[in-house]
Design a protein around this nucleic acid. Structure first.
Length: 306
DNA sequence: AAATTAGGTTACGCGAC
DNA sequence: GTCGCCAAACCTAATTT
C-alpha cells in the first residue's frame, strides 16, 4: 500500500481522498486543503513516562498519564457498535447520530495504527532522552516533528526507533542551538555513535534539511555557566571567536575545541582563570586540543597570557 | 599546571563494488 | 548499503618542563 516515493504520492486525505495536502512544519500538522481535516498533528508536551525502561531511572508515576503524544490522540476507549446505552435501552435518534460520528472518528484514528504505535514509542523515547540531558521542550517538540516526517517518508522500516529518535533530537538540537555535541548525544541517549550518525545523515538527506553549520558560539554560554564564569568573560569569549574567524582559525575545526580554547583564554584575560583540565572535563575536548587551538589564537592575534 | 611528543583513531566526501 | 581511501583534526598516553 505504501510506496517508496514519499508523502506526496502516498498520502491522501482520509475524508475526501484529496491529495491536496499541506504540511505545516511549525505546528507539525498535515492539513487537507480541500476539506480542512487535520490528518496528523504533532501533539507534544511534557508528561511522565508511562513505558517501563530496562535500566533504572525513575519511571514512577502518579495518576493517569497525560494524554499527550499518544498515538491515537487519546481516543483509546472503544465506542460500542450497538445503539444501546449501558442499561440496554435503545438510544434516541439524535444520540444515535452522535455515536455514528464518534465511530467514524474512531475508525479514522485506527487507520494507520501500526505507524501510530511506532510514533508513540518514538515520542516517549524523545521525551525520555531529551529530558535526560536537559534539552528544552522546544527541542523535543521539534524532534517530534522530524520524527513524524521520517515516518511519512518511510524512513523507519529496518531502522531502530531509538536511533532515529536520537537523530531527530540531534537535528532539533542543531536547529535550535541547544549546544549539545555529537558526543553529548551519544552519552545521553545510549544509542551508539554509528547508528545515530547513520540515521542522522539519512534524515538530513531525504528531508533536504538545510542546517547552518554549528558555530562555536553555541557552546560558550553552557561552558561559562558550568565553569561559574562571570558574564564579562562570556562576551570576551565571543569577541575572541569573532577575531579568530577573521583569521581563519575557526572554520574546519571542531566548534567545541574552538569554544573551549576561547574560554580558556578569556577566563585568564579576565582574571578568572580555569585550568585546561577543568575546561577539558566540561567540554569533552582534550587538553591537547585546547592547547593547540589557544596557541593558534595567541599567535595570530598577539595575545599575551600571564 | 602546562607543554611536548608520538602514535592511533575518527569523519568525510567520493567512487567502486 | 558497504568498503576503502584520503588528509586533517582529534584523541590517548607517556614524559618533560
Amino acid at each position: 500500500m505504501m510506496d517508496m516515493e514519499g508523502v506526496e504520492d502516498t498520502v491522501r486525505c482520509e475524508d475526501c481522498g484529496s491529495r491536496n495536502l499541506d504540511l505545516d512544519d511549525k505546528r507539525g500538522e498535515i492539513t487537507c486543503l480541500d476539506c480542512g481535516l487535520v490528518l496528523q498533528e504533532a501533539i507534544v508536551d511534557q508528561g511522565p513516562d508511562w513505558r517501563s525502561f530496562d535500566e533504572g531511572g525513575d519511571n514512577a508515576r502518579t495518576g493517569a498519564p497525560m494524554n499527550v503524544m499518544m498515538y491515537d490522540k487519546g481516543l483509546s476507549t472503544d465506542v460500542d457498535w450497538q445503539n444501546k446505552d449501558y442499561s440496554g435501552k435503545r438510544l434516541p435518534g439524535t444520540t444515535r447520530a452522535q455515536f455514528h460520528r464518534l465511530r467514524k472518528w474512531q475508525a479514522r484514528a485506527r487507520v494507520s495504527k501500526h505507524l501510530d504505535r511506532n510514533l508513540s514509542v518514538a515520542f516517549n523515547e524523545i521525551q525520555r532522552m531529551g529530558g535526560n540531558m536537559g534539552l528544552p521542550k522546544s527541542v523535543r517538540e521539534e524532534a517530534a516533528v522530524y520524527y513524524r516526517r521520517a515516518v511519512d517518508n518511510n524512513l523507519i522500516r529496518g531502522r531502530s526507533i531509538d536511533a532515529m529518535a536520537a537523530a531527530c533530537l540531534y537535528l532539533a538540537n542543531q536547529k535550535i542551538g541547544s549546544a549539545r555535541s555529537l558526543d553529548d548525544m551519544v552519552k545521553g541517549t545510549r544509542v551508539g555513535r554509528k547508528p545515530l550518525t547513520r540515521s542522522y545523515k539519512i534524515l538530513k538527506k531525504t528531508l533536504r534539511l538545510r542546517l547552518n553549520p554549528v558555530e562555536p558560539e553555541v557552546y560558550v554560554n553552557r561552558y561559562c555557566t558550568e565553569l561559574g564564569l562571570r558574564p564579562e568573560v562570556e562576551s570576551k569569549v565571543k569577541e575572541l571567536i569573532k577575531g579568530g574567524r577573521k583569521r581563519d582559525l575557526v572554520d574546519g575545526r571542531s566548534p567545541t575545541g574552538v569554544a573551549a580554547a576561547a574560554v580558556y583564554i578569556a577566563a585568564k584575560l579576565e582574571g578568572q582563570p580555569r585550568t585546561q583540565r577543568e575546561i577539558a572535563d566540561i567540554s569533552g575536548v582534550t587538553e591537547v586540543t585546547i592547547r593547540n587551538r589557544y596557541k593558534e589564537f595567541c599567535a595570530a592575534m598577539n595575545i599575551e597570557l600571564e
